[in-house]
């Protein structure tokens, strides 16, 4: 087990120190994070693993800027969310962060290419240009012409997750946070999805944080951070990194 990141010469994407977060107050208060120390570098795929309720999702929510911390420090590309307004955080998320969700969260009434184009449109791109760029990204994740205009409900779980990955990448974010991206997929599809993530997401020298329970994909990680009771209890570098294999 080591705490040294494999890409120690690359830029620090995320730095958390003494990070705390409590939900509720008084007798019902629940301390989800109890002083988390973590660094994530660009070009790195970090997996957060641990039992349910250990604070993994809370941690990536804070890193992604969708939840405010209570105490400690947390910077993402040297930006501290606490010094930013809500609007600035929203804009920062829009341009710097990509999301991949367990349940995909694809809008069912939009086509695959429209779903993928959403981050570009949010960032101000013309819809036609955004859809054209989204189609290109979908081709990169293995979509053929016929599937580009499919509704998400007509796609398999693996295909839907590929759309979600394309959506997370299309606007070239600096950091991508993934919440259980393979838990709804079978083993083979899960590995294919992770393969795509490693190939496309890390190619641009960006940081990738994956929350997972899925031991089948641990070998895709550069480092694995183990969490328990709101703390990082250990960081491990997998013996056989799938990227290297």
């Amino acid at each position: 087990m080591s705490e040294l990141p494999p890409h120690s010469t690359s830029r620090i994407a995320v730095r958390c120190h003494g990070l705390t977060k409590t939900f509720g107050a008084g007798a019902t208060a629940f301390q989800a994070l109890r002083g988390v120390d973590l660094e994530v570098r660009t070009g790195e795929l970090l997996m957060l693993v641990g039992p349910s309720g250990c604070g993994k999702t809370t941690l990536i929510s804070i890193i992604a800027g969708v939840l405010r911390r209570d105490g400690g420090e947390c910077t993402v590309f040297d930006q501290d969310y606490l010094s930013m307004t809500e609007q600035e955080i929203t804009r920062f998320r829009g341009s710097h962060t990509g999301f991949v969700f367990q349940a995909f969260n694809l809008i069912p009434t939009l086509t695959a290419s429209e779903n993928v184009s959403a981050p570009l449109v949010i960032n101000g791109m013309n819809r036609r240009a955004a859809v054209a760029q989204a189609r290109e990204m979908l081709r990169r994740v293995g979509f053929d012409e016929r599937m580009l205009e499919s509704s998400p409900v007509d796609l398999s779980g693996g295909q839907q997750q590929r759309v979600a990955i394309a959506r997370a990448l299309v606007h070239q974010p600096d950091i991508i946070v993934c919440d259980e991206p393979t838990s709804a997929l079978d083993s083979e599809t899960g590995r294919k999805v992770m393969q795509i993530m490693r190939e496309l997401a890390l190619a641009s020298n960006r940081a990738l944080i994956v929350v997972t329970h899925d031991a089948r994909i641990f070998d895709f990680a550069d480092r694995i951070a183990h969490m328990e009771d709101g703390r990082i209890t250990g960081i491990e570098i997998p013996q056989k990194n799938a990227a290297a294999s």
Partner: peptide
């Protein structure tokens, strides 16, 4: 029914005003 998608758009950077 669409709250999850509004939340997704919000997370992806859509402002409250939009």
């Amino acid at each position: 029914d669409n709250l999850r998608y509004f939340g997704t758009l919000k997370a992806m950077g859509t402002t409250n005003r939009t």
